[in-house]
Design a protein around this nucleic acid. Structure first.
Length: 279
DNA sequence: ACTAGGTCCTGGTTGC
DNA sequence: TGCAACCAGGACCTAG
């Protein structure tokens, strides 16, 4: 599932192939995949003739591709979305939702089995956060100096929420999903159910450092720690059991050999080592 | 103001 | 064996 490291990897990969490419034809195969403008035919029409630039940004799990005339293509992959840069004669993916034919004979394809992903075309002069839903509510980037132990202490004061739930809240910090949340909790030695107000200053420092560490590691491994992720060329990541705890229920902890446990929290599976993550 | 739980969606996996 | 139920999860929505 694409989280911050996967989206950042995608952004960097697209920089190698997309700048200068001009859209000559757009096919929307699934209306739901378009967030704005609707109906999707309006989106398609407005995208024709647009040219991609070398200016792209990532905010949390959102990807923002700036177009030459000043518009912005916003992308959220959600659960199963992929952006693929393909030669036009490459066989179409079974869950292709939107296809941008490019003047060079390539195609930028948005493939998304579960149809949760969205594309938005932000018109020239309109603030991106006004069009791309969820963007305005995002908290700080994890790598922003603003995101430190003091910030967490302020946000956690008087809150009883389980720590794992807090990490999934994009308003607290942008970009963490279920998998990196579990990994960051393991690396900081904190139990996912700990009420956030109970964390000590020292624990908050460990938490912040662990979050930054697992995300940086994820980027360094090209997001390859995730099972279903593939890059812009469709190359599959090597999940290969890199994770400390995610998806390892019953398997021995890599640090202490205790069996990894799983519980359900806010509808999400949560993996942890009961011995290493006792507080 | 805060929190929990349901919803969307579909293919793979599990269980009877 | 065959089929149904369950599971995966990001963001949004509603209810308490």
């Amino acid at each position: 599932m694409p989280e911050l490291p996967e989206v950042e990897t995608l952004r960097r990969d697209l920089l190698a192939c997309l700048p200068g490419q001009q859209v000559v034809r757009v096919e929307v195969l699934r209306e739901d995949s378009i967030g704005f403008p609707r109906p999707a035919a309006t989106f398609a029409e407005a995208m024709v003739g647009q040219r991609f630039t070398d200016h792209s940004e990532r905010r949390g799990k959102y990807l923002l591709l700036h177009l030459q005339a000043g518009a912005v293509l916003g992308v959220h992959l959600r659960m199963s979305g992929r952006l693929l840069f393909r030669a036009s004669d490459h066989p179409r993916e079974p869950h292709l939702r939107v296809c941008f034919a490019l003047a060079s004979g390539h195609e930028l394809r948005f493939e998304d089995m579960r149809v949760f992903g969205r594309l938005w075309l932000v018109p020239v002069g309109v603030p991106v956060a006004q069009v791309v839903s969820g963007l305005a509510q995002l908290g700080p980037e994890p790598f922003d100096p603003l995101f430190d132990a003091d910030y967490l202490a302020r946000r956690f004061r008087g809150r009883t929420q389980p720590l794992k739930s807090a990490l999934l809240d994009q308003n607290l910090v942008a970009g963490i999903g279920n998998i990196y949340a579990d990994e960051a909790l393991f690396c900081s030695g904190l139990h996912p159910l700990t009420p956030v107000e109970r964390l000590s200053g020292q624990q908050l420092v460990r938490l912040r450092d662990a979050i930054v560490q697992v995300l940086e590691d994820g980027i360094e491994r090209r997001g390859s720690s995730l099972r279903n992720y593939t890059d812009a060329q469709g190359v599959n990541g090597q999940y290969a059991g890199n994770a400390w705890v995610y998806g390892r229920r019953g398997a021995p902890c890599r640090r202490c050999r205790t069996a990894i446990e799983r519980l359900r929290l806010a509808g999400r599976s949560t993996h942890f080592c009961p011995s290493c993550q006792s507080s």
